[in-house]
């Protein structure tokens, strides 16, 4: 029973909270970062919606605001005792609201496939502490549309492209420290971005999070898991085909995050909010606003 509880809590936690490593000018919003972790014996498939707005701070941009919406299919399957595969397939809708006229781009994002190896599978310590650790390695494929002229021809930042036109490598690590019905989850994600065919290369991305959670059962069939913690993300500066850094790209931010997951039978529903605590995106030319995530998935 304890094993199931911790495993489920871990799953709830990781599925419902992700961070997006992005800035509003030149960075890959496609880098939906933090690895999603699933219960060591359970598989799932679900949809996640993310919303991240950025406001331009430049006087001549007259308060243009960018809204990044992401609808992501997420699936995880345990293929061997210690190995599971995770697939992320986003669909992106990027909207710019500007006094001189709005603009938008939409389409499938880049596909991610990560294989995780479970290093420690609920290792028990004296006193009841349990530890779960897994590490993953994966690949990001350039399946999403990428227009290399989006900046020069349409005056939109490169990261408005649903895809970023290049192959990438992914490293992930997830740790869950559980105690009775609660615990702490830690995770880290690093994505290496290769150059696109046009030579433009998005900056490499990293993200991490630390979340405290606890699970409750208000009436036998439904469980609630609230959680709270910190997330952080960073993106390196983009490079143009000529090897020079693209202006106004790169950035980092720290966020306070809180969310709630509800589980009923094999269904899971969750929502989370992130509020920026400190940030420096695109040479301080854009300001990240509060973000929101919602998800619905089926565990099997």
């Amino acid at each position: 029973m304890a094993r199931n509880v911790i495993a489920l809590a871990v799953f709830l936690l990781f599925f419902s909270e992700t961070t997006m490593a992005c800035d509003a000018c030149g960075c890959s919003v496609n880098g939906v970062g933090v690895g999603l972790m699933a219960v060591y014996r359970q598989n799932y498939v679900g949809m996640q919606y993310q919303y991240a707005p950025f406001r331009s701070q430049l006087e001549h941009a007259h308060g243009a605001v960018d809204y990044f919406h992401s609808f992501e299919l997420v699936a995880r399957l345990r293929v061997l005792r210690r190995i599971n595969l995770q697939l992320n397939q986003p669909y992106r809708l990027n909207i710019r609201r500007h006094p001189d006229g709005d603009d938008k781009r939409s389409g499938l994002g880049d596909t991610r496939l990560v294989a995780h190896y479970v290093l420690l599978d609920q290792h028990q310590f004296k006193g009841g502490l349990r530890l779960y650790t897994e590490a993953g390695i994966g690949v990001k494929a350039p399946t999403g549309p990428f227009d290399p002229d989006i900046h020069d021809a349409h005056n939109l930042p490169e990261n408005f492209n649903p895809g970023n036109g290049s192959w990438g490598g992914i490293l992930q690590a997830n740790i869950v420290l559980g105690y009775q019905t609660g615990g702490l989850t830690l995770s880290g994600n690093y994505q290496y971005n290769g150059p696109s065919t046009s030579g433009y290369r998005f900056g490499h991305q990293w993200s991490g999070k630390a979340l405290l959670y606890n699970q409750f059962w208000p009436n036998g069939a439904i469980s609630l898991t609230p959680y709270i913690g910190l997330t952080a993300e960073g993106i390196g500066r983009d490079e143009q085909a000529d090897g020079k850094y693209a202006a106004s790209t790169g950035g980092k931010g720290w966020f306070a995050a809180a969310g709630l997951n509800l589980k009923f039978n094999q269904w899971l529903l969750g929502a989370a909010l992130s509020q920026p605590l400190s940030q420096h995106y695109s040479n301080a030319e854009v300001e990240a606003k509060a973000r929101m995530t919602m998800n619905l998935s089926f565990i099997f």
Binding site: L119, L120, H123, L131, T133, A135, L171, Q172, A173, N174, I175, L186, S187, G188, N189, Y190, G203, H204, Q205, W206, G208, G234, I235, G236, R237, Y245, G250, K252
Partner: peptide, 24 residues
């Protein structure tokens, strides 16, 4: 077990705290 714990913590630490590489 201790080796696994050490390795996994190390791996996690590297990933969690790895910022973008310092540009040359």
């Amino acid at each position: 077990m201790k080796k696994f714990l050490f390795l996994s913590t190390l791996l996690f630490g590297v990933l969690f705290f790895s910022a973008c590489k310092d540009e040359e």
